[in-house]
Write a protein that binds this DNA or RNA. Structure first.
Length: 491
RNA sequence: GGCCCCAUCGUCUAGUGGUUCAGGACGCAUGGUUCUCAACCAUGUAACACCGGUUCAAAUCCGGUUGGGGCCGCCA
């Protein structure tokens, strides 16, 4: 379909995190959906930092948000670090805009100073709730005469700027939920700024979305009650109304909004735990959305092609870590050995298993036999530590397969030592070991009698990769050494 | 308490009035597979919250009940 005025109709969406903490998984998913919607429709995706709360905002959180969004591959077309037509993209740098519209609202008599104390307001709310009334602000400061207001202001009395809410039914359409209706009679006058230079959320959002020409506001369902408030402010300022789409919430296992008490909520936590960005993206996309087919594996690129708001769910979605693990295992298995070895290095270094200059070829061999056993990178050190340690520790009982006696274990170990020492260094590889040892193991009736003690002696673990591949990587010398050590234990 | 949103297997979901005694995936269980674990394969497990109505026909439409969730800040 052709469009005569593409620029004017261009879709523009935004993610507007406040730098008061690490990038939350919920924020990341909202960012993802906005990004997908923008890219699918050839629109623009804007990153705006909502740092009006000076107390809680910190540049370090802003950095965390930007770093992790980038890590996920979610790129913005305009933002604090990307020049754009509608900047600046940090609210703390947009103060003059807010002041401008605040003055306009004052001039038009649509806002007023409120001198109520927070304690007073809190008590009022409690009282209203207790008698079953809507907990809204009474609006009593509306009536303070102008002269009195000036006097109190001159005295330096603390105040807040409130927007006068006039009662009526407010209807708006939500792209996911359909037609919604709120009774604004139930909304008290909205605090929109502390003063001319300190805007508050509901007001700053409206001004910024207007000035940044945002066409679609896609955000979490927890913002639903804010929407009528923001529309009221928009109308007072004569701004056009964007389209709204409220996403279902991400829930914890108890079906309440995902929060810290459910476990990790920061994208950085998952990143450090060794989840891949592909995993997180694929997983987040399916929290409240699906393509309507049975396909479940999607890259960011393929999501862009398939995404649509119509397929977004209405009900909240529980964050299921088991599924995340499964997906991560899948993506780990998709990685090339080279790449997987590379990204494993930091985890092995952290566990002090390798130093600055690891033997990459050796590492790749190890990784290749553990790739299919890995769910997340942070598990790697515990799985492969025995390759790097000089001496491993385990209880003698570990060497025992089923009901073997110490005597039998010793026989197996002796046999192993005898057989293995005969193998030439150049033939000490998986295929050969298998050929030689399997014959002997078969002779014993139960292969476990030979193979289990071998694997246990080499790895020191209940479970591990197979003994032949481990032996090849360890090398003849070390293998014989570990068998000797096992024999010492049995004595 | 007030307002609002929501409701298919334990979880994520397919399903938009008949082709579905409801399909897929994760999980779980069982079996297969060179000792173990993993991976893989196969099989199984398990759901339309309830009550009315509309209709020849309802998981699908309407109403109510119940249940769950969100919000009610001079945070965002």
């Amino acid at each position: 379909m052709s469009n005569n005025n593409p620029k004017r109709n261009k879709i523009r969406v935004r993610i507007a995190p406040s730098p008061t903490g690490t990038l939350h998984i919920g924020t990341a998913r909202t960012a993802l959906f906005n990004y997908l919607f923008a890219k699918k429709n050839e629109g623009s995706f804007v990153l705006r930092i909502e740092d009006t709360d000076l107390e809680r905002s910190d540049p370090k959180w802003e950095k965390d948000i930007i770093d992790n969004l980038k890590w996920l591959g979610i790129k913005w077309d305009e933002g604090p670090d990307v020049k754009g037509e509608y900047g600046p993209y940090k609210q703390s740098e947009r103060l003059s805009s807010y002041a401008k519209y605040l003055k306009k609202l004052f001039k038009e008599g649509k806002v007023y100073h409120c001198f109520c104390s927070e304690d007073e307001l809190e008590a009022e709310r409690q009282y209203l709730m207790s008698i079953g009334e809507p907990a809204k602000y009474s609006g009593k400061c509306r009536e303070i005469p102008e002269k009195e207001v000036k006097k109190r202001l001159a005295e330096g009395k603390k105040s807040v700027i409130r927007f006068k809410v006039s009662g009526k039914k407010m209807k708006f359409k939500d792209l996911i939920r359909g037609n919604l209706e709120f009774d604004t009679l139930l909304i008290g006058d909205i605090a929109i700024a502390k003063d001319l230079a300190t805007p508050l959320y509901n007001f700053a959002v409206v001004v910024d979305d207007f000035e940044m020409k945002i066409t679609h506001v896609i955000r979490g369902e927890d913002h639903l009650p804010n929407t009528p408030k923001q529309i009221l402010i928009q109308e007072a300022l004569d701004f056009p109304r964007p389209e709204y789409a409220h996403l279902p919430l991400i829930l914890g296992s108890d079906r309440s909004k995902l929060s810290k008490r459910h476990g990790a909520t920061a994208v950085s936590d998952y990143r450090e735990d060794g989840y891949l960005s592909e995993t997180i993206v694929n997983f987040m996309a399916f929290l409240g959305w699906n393509p309507g087919t049975e396909r479940e594996i999607y890259s960011l690129r393929s999501l862009v092609k398939e995404f649509s708001l119509e397929k977004v769910q209405k009900g909240g979605a529980v964050f299921n870590i088991k599924r995340l693990d499964y997906l991560n295992g899948f993506y780990i298995r998709q990685k090339s050995i080279k790449k997987l070895a590379e990204i494993s290095i930091p985890y092995l270094k952290k566990a002090k298993l390798i130093k600055e200059d690891p033997d990459i070829e050796q590492l790749k061999k190890i990784i290749s036999i553990y790739q299919e056993r890995l769910k997340k990178l942070s598990e790697l050190p515990d799985l492969v530590d025995f390759f790097f340690k000089d001496k491993i520790e385990y209880n003698k009982g570990l060497l025992k397969w089923k009901e073997m006696t110490d005597e039998e274990i010793k026989d197996s170990l002796d046999k192993l030592e005898e057989l293995l020492s005969k193998i030439k260094l150049s033939n000490f590889n998986k295929e050969n070991l298998e050929k030689i040892l399997l014959i002997e193991a078969g002779r014993m009736g139960d292969r476990g009698k030979l193979l289990w003690p071998l694997r246990a002696a080499l790895s020191g673990k209940e479970s591990s990769a197979g003994p032949f591949e481990i032996a090849e990587i360890l090398g003849k010398e070390k293998v014989l050494k570990r068998i000797k050590e096992a024999k010492e234990l049995i004595k």
